[in-house]
């Protein structure tokens, strides 16, 4: 097991009370696998990994256990974390336009990683960095290497981000909505790139997204999140063919389909995402669910194993 997360709970302390962003979440990642994490904005999917990376906002606290290769990494000091971040695991972010430093050349932003973690000289670090730019498909890498971020397109910047995150050959790459800010045609290229690199470098990848289409093409296993909790876990094929949680079903139904011309308008899940400051006692999805029962409002369903490699948190026996 590469990463083992147990009972992770992340809270933010704000002026109007505590926000329960991640609630008692447990999952694991095997070496080399690709895990997809889906959910709406505010479902806690990003904050799980911010907690793991030690990048929570100042008012955030995380509790629980996060074991990386068996070693507890939650609660490590910044200095200790810095021996792991960018080395053992890296993260790329949603908005490549603002995630690169606009005042520094790509060259500096890449070589500094190797200088800091590998103790390389500037010359070697440059050579290694340019090789990675080639690997992620940046044309004229030698010339591009000397440029500033604003001289790149969005897709190219995300490629640079990916190259930068791979400099120390991490075992785990966390991609937080890597294609959300990009053009549709570029999205597919970036997803394909991440998939290829994962395979070629035998690197585990986490793909955080609200776009089920992205997950379908890339992941082995999928976690569905709602209200800061995991509500369903399944292999990607099973999730698409036989979703077991009403929320997952709703997500699948709200995907636009080219082959279905019968519906005049797109399907949406009614209602609003839950208020993370006042989660209900029962199931967080109950107010929006089409199958709500008496018990759903009173008792929160626990995540239960329903088949090999499948879990769900729902009182309903069979959704279909």
């Amino acid at each position: 097991m590469l990463l083992d997360v147990q009972n992770l709970t992340t809270r933010f302390h704000t002026h109007d009370g505590e926000v329960f962003a991640v609630n008692d979440v447990s999952f694991h990642i095997e070496p080399g696998e690709c895990l997809g994490i889906v959910g709406e904005s505010g479902s806690g999917k990003t904050q799980i990994f911010m907690s793991i990376m030690g990048l929570l906002a100042k008012n955030g606290t995380a509790e629980g256990d996060v074991l990386f290769e068996g070693k507890q990494i939650l609660g490590l000091s910044t200095a200790q974390l810095n021996t792991l971040r960018g080395v053992e695991f890296s993260m790329i972010f949603q908005d490549p336009m603002t995630s690169l430093n606009p005042y520094l050349r790509i060259a500096k932003q890449m070589t500094e990683v190797l200088v800091a973690h590998r103790g390389m000289g500037e010359k070697d670090a440059e050579k290694a960095s340019i090789e990675l730019l080639d690997l992620v498909g940046i044309p004229e890498s030698k010339k591009r290497f000397r440029m500033y971020p604003h001289e790149f397109s969005g897709g190219m910047r995300q490629r640079v981000m990916i190259a930068m995150s791979l400099l120390c050959q991490p075992k785990l790459l966390i991609a937080d909505e890597p294609t959300t800010a990009l053009d549709v045609t570029v999205q597919a290229q970036i997803i394909e790139l991440i998939a290829r690199l994962g395979r070629e470098l035998n690197m585990a990848t986490v793909l955080i997204t609200h776009d089920l289409g992205v997950i379908a093409g890339l992941s082995d296993r999928v976690l569905v999140m709602y209200g800061g909790r995991i509500v369903e876990e399944a292999a990607v094929r099973e999730l698409f063919h036989d979703p077991q949680h009403p929320y997952t079903r709703g997500l699948l139904d709200s995907m636009p389909r080219l082959d279905d011309s019968s519906r005049a308008s797109l399907y949406t899940i009614p209602g609003q995402p839950p208020n993370l400051q006042a989660l209900p006692d029962g199931c967080s999805f109950a107010p929006r669910c089409t199958h709500t029962m008496e018990i759903c409002r009173k008792q929160r369903p626990l995540l239960q194993k329903i088949a090999a490699g499948r879990t769900k948190a729902c009182h309903l026996e069979n959704v279909s």
Binding site: R85, G86, N101, A116
Partner: peptide
């Protein structure tokens, strides 16, 4: 609080480099 500072931290750079090299210029 900007995204590129988050990136610098995610790269495992120490806080002094984050401030002096990445934050001060902007």
């Amino acid at each position: 609080n900007s995204n590129f500072i988050r990136t610098a931290r995610a790269k495992g750079l120490n806080e002094r480099i984050v401030v002096i090299r990445h934050a001060l210029k902007g």
